[in-house]
Design a protein around this nucleic acid. Sequence first.
DNA 1: TCATTAAAAGATAAAAAGATCTTTTAATGA
DNA 2: TCATTAAAAGATCTTTTTATCTTTTAATGA
Lengths: 149, 149
Amino acid sequence: MLSRASKYAILSTLFLAEHSSKDKKISVKVIAESIDVPSPFLAKLFQQLVRGKIISSTKGPNGGFFLTEKNSKKNVLDIIENIDGLNKFNDCFLGLNECDSKNPCPVHFIVEPFKNSLLGKFRDKTIQEFSQEISEMGRVLTLKGLDLS
Amino acid sequence: MLSRASKYAILSTLFLAEHSSKDKKISVKVIAESIDVPSPFLAKLFQQLVRGKIISSTKGPNGGFFLTEKNSKKNVLDIIENIDGLNKFNDCFLGLNECDSKNPCPVHFIVEPFKNSLLGKFRDKTIQEFSQEISEMGRVLTLKGLDLS
DNA sequence: TCATTAAAAGATAAAAAGATCTTTTAATGA
DNA sequence: TCATTAAAAGATCTTTTTATCTTTTAATGA
């Protein structure tokens, strides 16, 4: 479905939303350990997320990654877009070049409604709202135990 | 979403459903050209589909690939299962190992209902029914112009 | 039975995704 | 200013997916 990079990105951005602030930056190493993900890979990923203005960073002592107000107004789809792009969602499920309601692939009318509402949901809520919801529900976002399949 | 192999598999199985029979076998080469896909790759794929009893084949002159009655009773999900496996669908959208309604990942309640209905749809109809529907709708399954993104 | 045809099988190559390592740059505090 | 810390950047390596090529096996018809 999503690339592993996108999954890491969503999880660690939510992690930052919950645990970081301007005054409390978090290093790659800490996050990588918390969510049990290879830290060099996460570091590379974070570079891209910073360039994409999904998260923020500062170097040096007490440096690390964090979310600004603006960052936390982004939504899950922005993260996916930044890493995987949206082609995966927009493209025909069976890979046909031309596929719309006038010229549908065999599964077009099955997949299309599904895809649209999923996209809508991922646009609906900001990272902040997501994060709030998670803590309000009393759920701990440990993120441990990522499945590698 | 799906691997390219799965996409090829679904498309060419539907192609066989429409154009082949026990008395009218079709060679890899013909299908590969019709759907504009590398024929050695399709050949490999067909081997696996034959082993998985999704399609049938005979060697030699007038040999080729075709669907038996039994083959055409399979559904789209059987094809996906044979090539990609079902993990992609069953696993947590964010890759968490433990993710269910008691211990949900951040997007669990968004993704779960959609996943289930999509799976249901792909189980609902046989290849035969799919193929019939396509020709009844007057749609031509040219399959040309596969997008490589 | 033997040449021909087409799939099966296996080995190999190229591209993409995932992961790691090393060097450079910037920020901080002593 | 200088040592230290942590991210940025770039190079490299591994695995998986996609694609290709060659050899073997089976079926058919002459």
